[in-house]
Write a protein that binds this DNA or RNA. Structure first.
Lengths: 181, 181
DNA sequence: CGTTTTCTGGTACATTTGTACCTATTTTAG
DNA sequence: CTAAAATAGGTACAAATGTACCAGAAAACG
């Protein structure tokens, strides 16, 4: 019978989180069984025990951050623009490792079919979070594209760097498609 | 005295191009001296001779695609929207390796200072190509963000996949900021 | 209780990697 | 033409990596 112990699950999660941290520091190339095990503070065999291949490790860890971000974005329904700016700002700058890992996922998904579903989830969540704010679906799509580009720019340049600046950028993006609200 | 032979330069370029192809197939992790040398059809020692470290190889190859793309985008000045759509479409789908490498560059630039300048070049070229089309600078910034997001989506999803569809997407993006042309 | 499965932690090994080194050969400069 | 520099191509080796294996501890379960 297949039983899942709580302790085992905790270690699995610890390993997934370690992958994210390794990803932030050294990029996808640095994600090795040994590096992840060391980061998680578990012996090497634990990493190979819970995740047979290095791919399992990547897929699992990146599915995890995707889930986290999807829930983060789906809870933005009735929020104000300032609240959204705070969420975006905190995600990019305070959870930078997750944010970077998230986009590394998108690129891995270009090559690995196992990640397609996760990447799709991300795109859908982004659009779903925007649709209630921008009723016109065609405009919503454009806004989603611009927000995607904005996140990339924040990750790379560090600007806009403050919550008010992020809010201003979001306002600029939305204003261009709010001619008929 | 430092002399640069034409033959040597040709091999250097062949190696840079090989990096791009390896990057497309296997991602950054697959870029090894041996893989690149094999892809370029030169012995291993040639790769280590022209590029001391693997980092030199990456930086050099990615600077190359950046240059190519920058010249591609800066020549769009007076072109029609259809022409721009063709350029974008062909770049993403026909030079897919270059396009992917280009974005891998942006991610590597998050971690390596040696790539900051190249990544900056790319962002600047994208904005400079848009400014003549969208006079209002604030709107131009939003359009640049949306185009960036559009490229990402094309790379990942393969849609919009045809030139007319790309043109339609561009038109949607521009329309939102063309209230006063 | 015992036993069956799950987990732990350690070690070993073949493979791949970066890199250094060496000797011919070709190209350039004077 | 000659000497020097640049390039070519081969090989060797230490380090790192994925992965398999094993014996013992802990937990689950009848």
């Amino acid at each position: 019978m297949v039983t899942i112990t709580a302790k085992g699950e905790a270690r699995r999660i610890a390993l997934q989180d370690a992958v994210i941290r390794v990803l932030e520091n050294g990029g996808p190339g640095a994600v090795t069984h040994r590096a992840v095990a060391g980061e998680a503070g578990v012996p090497l065999a634990a990493a190979t025990y819970y995740f047979a291949s290095i791919d399992d490790l990547l897929v699992s860890a990146l599915l995890r951050v995707t889930e986290q971000q999807v829930t983060l974005f789906t809870h933005l329904d009735g929020r104000s623009l300032t609240d959204i700016a705070v969420v975006l700002h905190d995600w990019v700058y305070l959870s930078r490792a997750s944010a970077i890992a998230q986009y590394e996922l998108l690129f891995l998904a270009m090559r690995r079919d196992g990640l397609r579903a996760a990447a799709d989830l991300w795109y859908r969540a982004l659009e779903d979070a925007i649709v209630p704010i921008v009723p016109n679906p065609r405009h919503a799509r454009v806004v989603a594209l611009a927000v995607d580009g904005l996140i990339l720019r924040m990750l790379w340049r560090g600007e806009p760097g403050t919550v008010p600046e992020v809010e201003a950028a979001l306002r600029d993006i939305l204003q261009s498609s709010l001619g008929s609200p």
